[in-house]
């Protein structure tokens, strides 16, 4: 039934145009940067953060679970893809999906008992943060502090082994667009309604027939899979396998960006990632040498500013601008 499929894949016109517009802008970024080696690398890092935050939005924004393990799932995707490539010459095109598979498996092993015992809020945050550290220790037990380097391999496209950053940029930019699209599809689906209800009030949601644990687990699995694939692409970019991939700080930063963006708003989440990550890189370049680590202060500062001025995050700002630009009658019900 192609008609049914087409309907499932379709977005509303407004959203579709927005997504196409975003794709065009992202495609042009390297051109504006004059294909400068260093700037394109920075832009690639920004896309990495944006795609990870977009994936996080599913568990953090829609389902309302303060998950701090984005870097764990990303690192699982990265180490599976990387080791299979370095040791067996397996193409990352397959490796990234195997990595995503492991990420989902770990997500289920951790998520099932977590949701079963109703672990929520700060306890959930602590537990997921601990997950990153535990996985780091496990990796350390196996590989030690040893760093594995992935050599350059040909053909380039098969092994995603490029000497310039543009391709990596475009791969991650494509991930950003795809993951935003997935977000929008979830939001307007039954899953999206159910996750929103769970986020707002678990007991009321359950009383309306929602199997809260099961739907939380769905959200966690989708997020882990996407983070795993992002990790698979990321490792072909850096080429260095190390326990440092399991980075608790990155897990926290991802959540912070999603929260600053305004919980549940995919536009806000991606915008926050782009702004914060760009600012961080800029500050690292501008004052990082004189005052090491000062760029990290940005997160604290921005979080305080957003918290005080705009508790709804950047999303409320976006909504405000949208309402000004395209005035629509509020009473109108679609």
């Amino acid at each position: 039934m192609p008609g049914v499929l087409a309907k499932k894949l379709a977005l509303t016109k407004e959203r579709l145009y927005g997504l196409i517009g975003l794709a065009i802008v992202l495609a042009l970024v390297p051109v504006f940067l004059g294909f400068n080696f260093y700037y394109v690398l920075l832009a690639t890092n920004v896309m990495l953060a944006a795609s990870l935050v977009a994936a996080w939005n599913i568990i953090g924004g829609y389902a309302g679970q303060l998950d701090l393990a984005a870097s764990a799932y990303m690192a699982l995707g990265a180490v599976v893809t990387g080791h299979l490539l370095a040791s067996y010459g397996l193409t990352p095109w397959i490796g990234m999906f195997l990595g995503a598979g492991l990420a989902v498996t770990v997500a289920v092993l951790v998520g099932y008992p977590t949701f079963r015992f109703g672990i929520k809020e700060v306890w959930y945050a602590l537990l997921t943060s601990a997950l990153v550290v535990i996985l780091m220790r496990i990796y350390y037990l196996i590989y030690g502090s040893f760093e594995t380097y992935i050599p350059h391999m040909e053909p380039e496209w098969l092994y995603l082994s490029f000497r310039r950053y543009e391709v990596y940029y475009y791969l991650l930019a494509a991930m950003v667009v795809i993951i935003i699209w997935i977000n929008l599809k979830i939001k307007s689906s039954k899953l999206g309604y159910y996750l929103a209800a769970i986020r707002e009030d678990e007991l009321a949601a359950e009383a309306l027939g929602i199997d809260v644990r099961r739907y939380k687990l769905y959200a966690l699995m989708i997020y882990a899979a996407l983070a795993g694939i992002i990790g698979g692409i990321y490792i072909t970019l850096t080429g260095i396998l190390s326990y440092r991939l399991f980075d608790p700080w990155l897990g926290i930063v991802t959540a912070v960006m999603g929260i600053v963006g305004g919980l549940g708003s995919i536009e806000g989440a991606v915008l926050a990632a782009v702004i914060l990550r760009s600012l961080e890189e800029y500050l690292r370049g501008a004052i990082g040498a004189t005052y090491p680590g000062s760029h990290l202060l940005v997160y604290g500062l921005i979080l305080i500013i957003v918290g005080v001025l705009k508790p709804e995050g950047l999303a409320s700002l976006i909504r405000y601008v949208k309402n000004k630009l395209f005035y629509r009658k509020r009473e109108e019900v679609k």
Partner: peptide
């Protein structure tokens, strides 16, 4: 209440129990 859902969305959550199509 589902504070960040509209009235219509909140009632839709209930309806989704028997009607899977949004």
């Amino acid at each position: 209440p589902f504070k960040k859902l509209t009235v219509l969305e909140a009632v839709t959550v209930g309806a989704l129990l028997r009607i899977p199509d949004v």
